[in-house]
Structure formats: structure tokens, C-alpha cells
Amino acid sequence: MSSDPIVICEKVSRRFGGLVANDSIDMTVRRGEILGLIGPNGAGKSTLFNLIAGSFPPSSGKIMFDGQDITGLPAAKLCALGIARTYQVPRSFDSMSVIENVTVGAFVRYPRMLQAREKAMAVLDYVGLASKADAAGSELTPPQKRRLEVARALATEPKLLLLDEVLTGLTPAEARAGVELIRKIRETGVTIVMVEHVMEVVMPLVDRAVVLHLGKVLAEGAPTAVVRDEKVIAAYLGDRHRAA
């Protein structure tokens, strides 16, 4: 892993009315790493994902991706540049079949139908959903929907993959399979930022962790160091039992 940064957030803030969801966040994601973004409910994790992926612009601050200022660029443009994301609450296209869902993503790189479909099929095979290719998006179980979200994102051939709680709510066996998949994806050279509540699951997986609390960066560093940080423990007390 190099220390060459792929994402740099400089003093990134986002306000919703009077609420400051992200408060002057400085954060760097290194190329090729798996970065864990953790923090209690309402810490601002999903908001930061939305800002990086372009769902809405930051109220202030600057976001660099791959050496380019991407502040305020629309999501579709960012997808073309190589940022893909999943949603905390899976958002499949329910009137479309599983393979059609994934093909939507593949069209970014493969404008022609057959190539896009072939790409989609390969990705479904990769994430272990090939047998569900023709099922309707709405027929999937929640864990399968998570996989579909990942497949759709991968079909866009991202450089950076933002995973918002993809392991939450899975059985231990499913979570282990998910962890394997994430490792496999990283090995292909994709940089991953993952939001997760359950520290036990993410800590062994991530190279580094950033802890958000009340919209601010509370701590950052090696996972082992972060979980022993006093401030982090204090912030998590009370929330931890609920999350685990």
C-alpha cells in the first residue's frame, strides 16, 4: 500500500438548517487501503459519504479525488470519475431484475447492451448472486439486497468504493462471507471506505480507522490504537450496546 492519497477532505462541513452534520472534517483516504469510518448514530458518517459521492454539495470546504477538485460535482459525474457507493438502506430498482439493476451500473463503462450485460453477469458471479440474476430486485432477502448494492457499485468499475453499513444486520456467517468479499475486492486494487457500527467486525478488516463524533473527527489511526482511545470509548459508551 502506498501513502499516495486518493481522497482528501479539507475542512469539509455540511449543515442541515441549524444542525451541523459534518463539522470541518479533515480526512485523507490512501490509495489501496480499507479505511473504516466509525462513530455512534448520527455522527455524520453517511453525510460524509453523500458529500464525497456528490449526493449534495458541502456547505463549505474542499474535496479532492484522484488529484482533482471534485467539490460540488454531481453524483453521475463522480461515478464516471470512479467513485461508487452503496446506501445504508438498500435502494434497489425494484421494477428491474437483479441483472438489470447491475447493468445500469455497467453502462457507465460499457455503453453497448451486450457488453454491459456481460459485465453485469460477471460481477453477479463475483459477488455470488449469479443464481438470482433473473429475480426481481424486490424478491431479494435483505442480505441479498446488500450484495446487489455492492454488485451494482462494482459494475461501474470504481477506483473508490464507499460501503455504508453493508455488514450490518447480517448473521455471523453472512458477515464473514461479506468480509471475504470486501478483502477480495480490495485485492483488485479498489480503495474502500466502509462505515460500520460493529467494531468487532470491522476492526480486523480495516487498515486504518477514522472515528466521527457529532460531526467532527474524534480520532484516527490504526484500529487497535483507535479502540483504546479514551475519547472514543467515552463517545461509544451507551451507544455500543445498542449497536452490537
Binding site: S55, A84, S92, G105
Partner: peptide, 18 residues
């Protein structure tokens, strides 16, 4: 496919490059 994705979930569609 873009149209159908837009119909089902415009935000998710946008995040996939639509």
C-alpha cells in the same frame, strides 16, 4: 435502463452514473 432506474430511484440512478 436509465429511464427505468430513474423511475424506481432517481438518487440511486444518479449514483450509478445516470
Amino acid at each position: 435502463y436509465w429511464w427505468r432506474a430513474v423511475k424506481d430511484d432517481p438518487d440511486a440512478a444518479e449514483s450509478l452514473g445516470v
